[in-house]
Amino acid sequence: MRIAVQEQPFDLGAESDVFAAAATGMGAVVTFTGVVRDVDGGLEAMEIEHYPGMTESAIRKIAEDARDRWSLGDVLVIHRYGRLAPGERIMMVATAAPHRKDAFEAAEFLMDYLKSRAPFWKKEITRAGEGWVAARCEDEDALKRW
């Protein structure tokens, strides 16, 4: 299990390759990547703040919960902070499991919990000004299905 909270970009291809190569005996590897999205066409940057110390331990706990619930060979979470431009990759999750159902479900579980339980806060900087991204009720509701 690897958890990385970092400012610098990550190499999606290299990370996926290393993760998949290490997952010996696993029949399924699922990767998810989150990307900075420019919804209204005016986004200049996304600033991501986090809580150093708590961020790593919160993600580790979420990953351990996933490992307890599904049959997983390995878990990888990389999440960036700092100033990101539209199109940049914010984060990635990878899961390896003997079967695809576990790998897919665990990846979704990780994403749902990372959204609402890992201490990150996003601020959008647009041409018109800047504002904190509000948490959505749907994101909180998404936790109930687990």
């Binding site: 809580y51 990372l114 990150f120 948490a135 909180e140």
Partner: peptide, 10 residues
């Protein structure tokens, strides 16, 4: 002790 708004990770 830390105070913050609801988190928006992912």
């Amino acid at each position: 002790v830390a105070f913050f708004p609801p988190m928006t990770g992912g």
